[in-house]
Amino acid sequence: MTCLQNHTDRIKKNDVLLVCTLRNERIRLPYFMKYYRDMGVSHFLFVDNDSDDGSREFLIGQGDVSIWHTTASYRKSLFGVHWMNALARKYCHGHWTLTVDVDEFFAFPFCDTRPIPALTDWLDNSGLRSFSAMLIDMYPKGPVDAQPYIEGQNPFEIAEWFDSGNYMLSTNWEYENLWIQGGPRARLFFHNDPFNAPSLNKIPLVKWDRSYVYLHSTHMLLPKRLNKVYDSNGGEMASGVLLHAKFLNTFVQKTEEELKRRQHYAGSREYLAYMSRIKDDPDLWCNWSEKYINWRQLEILGLMSKGNWA
């Protein structure tokens, strides 16, 4: 990993940081940066896995961005986890750190009126060091590539639908985290093989300590106690979501590319499943799909919770 731009000396004491690994996401970057800057992220740490679409060039020169470049294998780095852990250990110690992909948009209770630092201050006050935000796959009505995404656009103007209540939960006793599967991907691509449906549980916001590591994407961490983001006595802890803007027109070409590269989890079986389905019937929408309005809707549906934050 070589450093192309290091502005980490500009990180101040209570800054919220964002760590992101990317490859060829140029078209998504402007909106991504705006979204998280508006939410109060103070510094971005990027790992560029050898983009050739100008992503790197776009980021270099921005004052709140530090960026590293690598040509190494995404698969061998455990899908970016090693890179992320290395950066976080060095630069994120003592900071609230949000680890997301370029197509993941963090939403949390009161996010329309309160920035991320309001949340992290409250978490600090409550003695919490990690915050759960499950992945919600968002999709358009009609074929995923019917409406092309335009640079700078809010992706959820196109992908504005989601599955509100078909999520399957179980406890992974080894690491004490919850394992969540479901949503449109399980419903359409893995209905005969639900065990292999993608995991949706994520813990992307952590008050980082150099002794912490992510184990598998941001699905779980060590030490184990950071995975205990849920109450098992009936109460609700506060939680958010990551709105997943994967299913846009960019998805079809990305799928083809990823199938060539074979750099994704479990032999890219996810992408194989997508490909076979998207070719026949590219519509993820169904009669019971829910149209996204705001975080309050997700709260009422029980996908996230305010917990005791009011």
Partner: peptide, 24 residues
Amino acid sequence: KAVERRTMGREGLYMQSRMPGHGQ
């Protein structure tokens, strides 16, 4: 209400931050 949500939660809801164990 916030305290009630944190301590009692919504009955019958299983989600990322509420996973009541058996016999609770």
